[in-house]
Structures are given as structure tokens and as C-alpha cells.
């Protein structure tokens, strides 16, 4: 199978994730979209690793997963705390920190 297709898939997934981050209001959904973007890049890393026959891309993919796992922990904790205080998971409601 042509490895370019994986790259196309990765690009489509990344775009979907980016659109979700920009368009959706629910913090959980935004969060999942971020995860989607991370996984799209992971897919691209692995594909490039395969194409060039080097392991660098796969190593970086593992790093990304570790960082993503840590980020999920912190991010979810923040979302839950915000939900507890304001009874809303909308990112537009959390807009007190501004000019």
C-alpha cells in the first residue's frame, strides 16, 4: 500500500481536530479534538519512519504519547474543577482572564 495514503489520512485527521478545537464549545469535545490532532501527528511520524527506514519517528511518537497522557491528566482535572465551580463545560464561559 502506498504510504502516502497514511499521510493523507493524517492530514485529514489533523484538520478535523483543528476544526473541532476552533468550532466546538464543549471543553471535553475540544479536548478530544486536541487528542485527535496529536494522534494525527503520531500517525505522520510513524509513516515517515517507515518511509525513511529510520526509527526516529517511532521514538518521537512514544514521546508524544507520554506527553499526551500527562496532558490528559492535568487537562481533565482543570475541566472538572471549572465544571464544579461554574456548572458549565463551555470554553466560552471561562473568559474572565482578559484585558
Amino acid at each position: 500500500m502506498n504510504p502516502d495514503n497514511y499521510l493523507y489520512l493524517s492530514a485529514i485527521l489533523f484538520t478535523l481536530g483543528a476544526l473541532g478545537v476552533l468550532i466546538r464549545r464543549n471543553a471535553i469535545v475540544v479536548f478530544m479534538c486536541v487528542e485527535l490532532m496529536l494522534n494525527a501527528t503520531n500517525l505522520a511520524f510513524v509513516t515517515f519512519s517507515r518511509m525513511h527506514g529510520a526509527l526516529d519517528g517511532q521514538v518521537i511518537a512514544f514521546f508524544t504519547m507520554v506527553v499526551a497522557a500527562a496532558e490528559v491528566v492535568v487537562g481533565l482535572a482543570i475541566i472538572i474543577t471549572v465544571f464544579r465551580t461554574r456548572r458549565s463545560a463551555s470554553v466560552d464561559d471561562a473568559n474572565l482572564l482578559k484585558y
Binding site: 483543528a18 478545537v21 476552533l22 468550532i23 464549545r25 470554553v91 466560552d92 471561562a94 473568559n95 474572565l96 482572564l97 482578559k98 484585558y99
Partner: peptide
Amino acid sequence: FRRAQNGFVRSYALSMF
């Protein structure tokens, strides 16, 4: 220019993108 700091996360994200 300060007005750009409007507190909406998604607009920050848009500028980052």
C-alpha cells in the same frame, strides 16, 4: 491592541493556527 485579549480561548487558538 489590548482588546485582542478578549478571554475567549478559541480566538487565541485561531490566532495560533
